Amino acid sequence: MRYQYLLFDLDGTITDPKVGITTCVQYALEHFGIHEPDNDKLEPFIGPPLQDSFEQFYHMDAETAKQAVAKYRERFQTVGLYENEIYDGMADLLKTLKEGGCRLAVASSKPTVFVKKILEHFDVAQYFDVVVGSELDGSRTKKEEVVQEALRQLDPKGQASSGQMVMIGDRCFDVQGAKAHHLDSIGVAYGYAAEGELQQAGATFVVDTVQQLKELLTR
């Protein structure tokens, strides 16, 4: 196989979390008297750290954004977490890679505790050697930091070459996280990137479907 160490983003890459994430953002915004009925407008929240998104898209200061994140999680941890679907063919791809001797990691900006619950919910947790997300206290939210920790756990002795590793994700943040550590990146256009976002970020490859991703990884 082309790569032996594979880091996967979660949202928009392994699963489609749109309903859960956007509905929880709506819930948080309502707390501040902001009514946003169109959850399509909230798709940019899928991928980057929540705190950054509330600050950027709704011009909240850091403290208000922190409160918005807490409100978001109030609903997400019990309901929104499971308003989610695994992409068709993804479980089979993960199984194929694992059986082929690859080491797999999840590198997500979502808190690790939620990432693990989602992987277990979709019965794919067994395919991952390492699961790294952010912390609930707001630390390790940047993708470069997440990738760094995932690499440390995936290859603790530092024996693998960067050419054996790849980051797979649907947003520019995943590509940037890979670049920060001199890794190849595969952008998955079936996720939530804007038109041309992955190419502009400099993804090594861009695929349109899970099947194309499988063909690239297993050839």
Results as ranks from 00 to 15, higher is better:
L216M: 10
A180L: 05
L94F: 13
A62G: 15
G89K: 08
T141F: 08
I21K: 03
V210E: 06
F8R: 03
D11V: 03
D52N: 12
G33L: 11
G196P: 01
A150G: 01
H35I: 11
K157W: 14
G169E: 06
R103P: 02
L42F: 02
M90K: 09
K214C: 07
D38G: 09
R171Q: 04
T218I: 10
F205S: 03
V210G: 04
G101N: 04
C172L: 14
D16A: 10
T15Q: 01
P17M: 08
T22Y: 05
Q26V: 13
N39Y: 15
Y127F: 12
M1G: 06
T96S: 07
E99A: 13
A28R: 04
Y58R: 05
L198Y: 13
L217D: 01
D129V: 01
K116A: 10
K98T: 15
S53N: 06
T204W: 10
L217K: 02
K143F: 03
L213I: 04
E149P: 00
L81R: 02
R171E: 09
L7H: 00
K71R: 15
E195D: 12
L29A: 05
Q176W: 00
D38S: 11
T13D: 09
Q212S: 11
G80Y: 02
E55T: 09
E83V: 07
K117L: 14
L104F: 12
Q159Y: 12
D129L: 01
G33K: 11
V79Y: 05
A160Q: 12
D208P: 07
V79D: 10
Q176M: 01
V166A: 01
H35W: 09
K116P: 05
K143Y: 02
Q164D: 15
G89N: 09
K66G: 14
F205P: 00
Y3T: 10
Q26T: 12
P44D: 14
K214S: 09
H31E: 15
G101V: 06
A70H: 07
